[in-house]
Simulated scan of single mutants.
Amino acid sequence: MEQTNLNTRYQTKDQTYLKWKKRIDAVLCIVALIVLSPLLFAIALIIKCSNWKAPIFFKQKRVGKNGISFDMYKFRTMHEDAEAQLEKYLEKNEIEGAMFKLKNDPRVTKFGRLLRKTSLDEFPQLWNVVKGDMALVGPRPPLQREVAEYTTHDKQRLVITPGCTGLWQVSGRNELSFKEMVELDLRYIQRVSFGLDFKIMCKTVLVMLLPKGAY
């Protein structure tokens, strides 16, 4: 019942916001992809030169709005066999709850650590926004295995389109617990507005310039 109520509150928000958010996000991301194309090309070239046989991009199934899965893109920051090695590192998880984070993850490449620290590895997600899978601002899109562990309360995060950045990312990121992330996401869903999105995006720029809690 609680999840239904939150979904209803979100759907009855200012319809102008709900109508235009997707369109504005898509336009902004197209412009960003064009403007940032030299930087994106340089990153892609460095990744490719480090390992010609490995892919430049990392594609992973994530869960979006209403539990619908989609392929999310990032610049590859890990060694090619990282997914195959995941099982043996799960017990070393440093975040409690339905999420996996390991600060000194040995699967991450040297250049990958720089990309993660500056969040540059996330830039290909701008294409996900253009496609409509994601928004610029919203909850972090979870993995399918994470959602399998969600409680009914946690699943409320899925009533809205996931974002490239959000309250969690600008409020401490990996230094926060899974429970704190969920509460921040639900707070965002309850208060969505263009003003809040703009504030979060401005804070995101500061987080990228002065990274803290990213690994």
Rank of each mutant, 00 (worst) to 15 (best):
E122S: 06
L136H: 02
G138I: 11
E94V: 11
R157G: 07
I189G: 01
G163S: 07
F58R: 05
S119F: 08
F58E: 04
V192I: 12
I43G: 04
P142L: 05
G195P: 10
A42W: 14
M134V: 09
G172H: 02
M99Q: 12
V108E: 05
R9Q: 13
Q156T: 12
A98M: 05
D81A: 12
L196H: 02
I30R: 04
R191Q: 12
Q190L: 14
Y73I: 14
M72K: 08
T165M: 05
G172P: 03
P38E: 05
M201L: 15
S193R: 01
D81C: 12
L28E: 06
L143R: 10
P142V: 09
V63G: 00
W52Q: 14
D71W: 10
V31L: 13
R191S: 11
A135I: 10
M78I: 08
F198L: 15
A42R: 10
K131S: 09
R107P: 00
D154G: 07
R145F: 14
C49Q: 14
G132N: 01
W20R: 11
I30E: 05
R140L: 11
D154S: 09
M201F: 03
L115R: 10
F194Q: 00
C202S: 11
G132Y: 00
T165A: 04
I24T: 03
Y10F: 15
V147R: 02
W20I: 10
V170C: 00
M181N: 06
K179P: 00
C49A: 15
L209G: 03
V31T: 14
D25Y: 03
V27Y: 06
K212C: 10
L206P: 06
S50E: 15
K212M: 08
K74T: 10
V108P: 03
Q144W: 10
F111E: 06
G67C: 06
Q156C: 15
A84Y: 11
V31H: 02
V170Q: 00
D197V: 06
G132K: 00
L39N: 00
R107M: 02
I47C: 07
G213M: 07
V63P: 00
F41E: 04
K88D: 09
L40H: 06
R23V: 15
L40G: 08
D154A: 08
K131W: 02
L39G: 01
E94D: 10
L90T: 04
E175L: 13
